[in-house]
Amino acid sequence: MSSLVLTLIKGAIALNVALVVAAALVYLERRISAWIQYRIGPNRVGPFGLLQPLADVLKLYTKEDIVPYNASKPFHRIAPIISIAVALSVLCVIAPASYLLLDDGTKLFIAVAPNVNVGLLFYLALSSIGVYGIVLAGWSSNNKYSLLGGLRSSAQMISYELAMGLAAVAAVMVSGSLDMNQIIASQSGGRWNIWFQPLGFLIFLVASFAETNRAPFDLPEAEPELVGGYHTEYSGMKFGLFYLAEYANMFTASAVMTTLYLGGYDMPFLPTLLGLQEGTLPRVLFELAVFVGKVSVLLFLFIWVRWTLPRFRYDQLMNLGWRVLLPLGLANIVITGAIVFFVR
């Protein structure tokens, strides 16, 4: 099997996993928010309401696709595509498990694009392209609220991109590589980056919330002020794509945080205790389970925080980004650099 076909298959699997995860997240979001508010949440469609996302998507498909009269039609059409494409393409550098040793001795890496030596940079670059989808959506709708939402999101993403990058730099200094597989390998045996980089993890976490436009940083779609923000003028499946992109972004952000700070698929002692050999199928499944477990914890945190904290005011958001997270990130780099330089 040629490597191209293999990559395509892996890509298709990753894509479907992401979409299923996004659907599951929509369900979980509604269920958890209901529990936090003394409600029950969707429980009618299918067992425990598990088919609710399916019903939602069916509804979105059958809805009328309205384009405002004065909208810039090509950009109005392309904006949600950019959002979802960026959100999904980030997945290719994420390594949910190490590798499978085939009979002829070759290693079958589980990641779609394994051992990319700029994996982390790829993630940072693509996640900032995501802002184009939102800005274009806001601008092409020809609606003042959409435009304000788009502008806010560009300002917010640019501000928090910096803090995120700085936090990632410190983590990379500890791990010594930008390659996702290498980063995980450097954290093996429980030497997770979060123990060495608690501040960096915190900065990265907060910046991830801002990058994915999640509460308390969901200013681009602040309902009370901006109607729906950038997606006010979207309906039907175009709106659905934005919705999907938000949850896919959450998933990828959690996966990157798991890779960068929580040791990826690493779980100390347990594989050796269970006698799982590296490269065997049980080991790969175990690693997948560990990775999914860690990602789920972070995803739960995303939802949990959204239904706990009120939205930041715009000036508070900028203050936090530029006057708190950025200096902290810089200090974190200096301290990490000094320790790495003198200790190693």
């Binding site: 529990w35 003394y38 409600r39 915190l202 949990w304 706990t308 904290l309």
Partner: peptide, 24 residues
């Protein structure tokens, strides 16, 4: 912020397991 955020998260986490008010 962080200690207060942790307090808020603890509160909402506790709320998740409380009896629900919804009538089916």
């Amino acid at each position: 912020y962080l200690p207060e955020i942790a307090k808020g998260l603890a509160l909402t986490f506790k709320t998740m397991f409380k009896p629900k008010l919804t009538r089916q």
